[in-house]
Design a protein around this nucleic acid. Structure first.
Lengths: 229, 229
DNA sequence: TTATTAACTTAACATTGAATTAACCTTATG
DNA sequence: CATAAGGTTAATTCAATGTTAAGTTAATAA
C-alpha cells in the first residue's frame, strides 16, 4: 500500500505504546519509513542515527517532556533541522505549553484522526521540500522566506500578495530556467483554474514594479525566466 | 539515575510517612533534591532554610492543614515564590475552591501514579523556568507573563482573556512569522474544534482594540503576523 | 441552587484589496 | 510591415477579512 514515493523518514515519540502503534500503522500505510521512541533520550539518540525529516513529539512524557526534547534536538542538529510537530491533548492550553518558542513547527491535537494526521504530515513534508529548493540561493541578493512570507531584496523587505509571492517563488526556485505559461498556470493556479490570457502578465508586471525590471526576463513565445544580473 | 540536570529542590509535606517515602523515591530517582516535612510547622521552618522551587503539600493534615500552611508560606516569602501543588484524595474535591485562593498552582490527586507525578512535577518546574525567561526580553515593548495571562505593553498592564492571550502568545512567539488560520486553529483551538469562520477574526479584532492596530498584521489569503514596529 | 458577569461564539452585514478582466498599446520577429 | 505575443492601465469582481451586536456558554458571586 505504498502511495508515497518520497520515502521520508518519520520519528514518533510517545510514552504510550498504543499511540505509537496507531501512528506507525497509519503512516507506514502511506509509505513513510517510521521509527519510534518511547522517551526523550531514546529520541535524541535515534535522531542522530536516522536523520528524520519529521518528528512527531508527545508533549506529556515522564522524565524529559516534549518541549525539552525539542529544544535539545534543535540544539543538537544545528544544520539539518527536521520539522517538529507536537502531539497534545485537547485539554492542554497552548499558553501552558508554548511550543512554538521551543522550536515547534505545528501542533496536532489528540484524539488523532487518521485522515487528518496523514494530510497534515504530508503538508508538513511538502514544506520541507520547498524549503530545500529555496534555501540554496543564500548568497544572492534575493532571499525568499516562506515561513515569514517575506521577500528580501538588497536589505529591503517586501511583502507580496499571495499570487505574486508564489509566482516569484516558482521562478526564483530555478534561476535561469525558463518556465512556460502553461507550467506557471498549473503550478501557481492549479490546472483547474480557467484564467484569462493576460492574468499572468499583470502579475509579472506587479513583480517588476516591486523588484525592478532586471530580475524577470521574458522569452517571447516561450515563457519567463528569473536571473540575478 | 540522575536524568535531570536542573537540580531543583522539592519539599514534600505529608503526615503519612509512606507517602513521603513513595514521593521521595520517585523524585530523587529523577535527580531532584528532596526534603520532607510531616506537618505544617516543620514545613515553614524548612522552607526558609532550603528555598525549594516546588512544594507538594498534603491538604489533610492534623494541627495545621495544607491550606493554612500554604497561606503562611505565601505570606512569609513575599519575593521568591515557590510553586505549590496540593495533594488531595479524589473524594475531597470541594476543597479545590479554597486551594487556589490560598495560592496553590496545581493539584495532584491521590492515588498518585509515578509517571504522572514526574511529568507533572517537571511541567510545574518548567513553568518556573519559563517565567524567568520571559522577564528577559527587556528591550521589546511587549512583555508576556504566561501564568497570569498578563501582557505589558509600554508600561500598560493588560489582562487578557484566555483565548486572546493564547492567540497573542502564539503570534508573538515568532515575530515576523506568518501563521495561517489553519495553524492558529489547530494550536489555540485544537483541530477537532469546529468553530465558525469569523471566530478568529473577532479575537484578532479584540486584540487590536487593546494593543492598537500596529502589532498584528493581516496577510490576506495567507494569515496573520505579529511585529513590533 | 439561582443570579450575575465575563468570555466566547455566531450570525448578519460592511469593507477591503488581491485577483482578474477588458480594452488598448508596444514590441520582437518572420 | 504585419502580426502575434506580450505589456500596460484602469475598472470590475469577489472571496477574504473586518465589524458589530446578539446569542451561548462558562465562571463566579450571592
Amino acid at each position: 500500500m505504498q502511495n508515497n514515493m518520497t520515502g521520508h523518514t518519520i520519528l514518533l515519540v510517545d510514552d504510550e505504546q498504543d499511540i505509537l502503534d496507531f501512528l506507525s500503522y497509519n503512516l507506514q500505510k502511506e509509505g513513510y519509513k517510521v521509527f519510534t521512541a518511547s522517551n526523550g533520550e531514546e529520541a535524541l539518540k535515534l535522531v542522530r542515527q536516522i536523520s528524520p525529516s519529521l518528528i512527531l513529539l508527545d508533549i506529556m512524557m515522564p522524565k524529559m517532556d516534549g518541549i525539552e526534547t525539542c529544544q535539545l534536538i534543535r540544539k543538537d542538529l544545528q544544520f539539518e533541522q527536521p520539522i517538529i510537530a507536537f502531539l497534545t491533548s485537547r485539554a492542554e492550553d497552548y499558553s501552558q505549553v508554548a511550543g512554538f518558542e521551543a522550536g515547534a513547527d505545528d501542533y496536532i491535537t489528540k484524539p488523532i484522526r487518521p485522515r487528518l494526521l496523514v494530510s497534515k504530515v504530508s503538508s508538513l513534508l511538502r514544506r520541507l521540500e520547498r524549503a530545500v529548493e529555496t534555501t540554496d540561493n543564500t548568497n544572492s541578493s534575493l532571499k525568499i522566506n516562506r515561513d515569514k512570507y517575506l521577500v528580501e531584496l538588497n536589505e529591503n523587505k517586501i511583502i507580496l500578495p499571495k499570487k505574486e509571492f508564489e509566482l516569484l517563488e516558482m521562478l526564483a526556485s530555478r534561476p535561469g530556467n525558463v518556465f512556460t505559461r502553461e507550467q506557471i498556470l498549473s503550478t501557481v493556479w492549479g490546472n483547474e483554474a480557467i484564467v484569462g490570457e493576460r492574468t499572468i502578465d499583470v502579475h509579472i508586471r506587479k513583480l517588476r514594479e516591486k523588484l525592478g525590471n532586471d530580475y524577470i526576463r521574458t522569452i517571447k513565445g516561450v515563457g519567463y525566466t528569473f536571473s540575478e544580473d
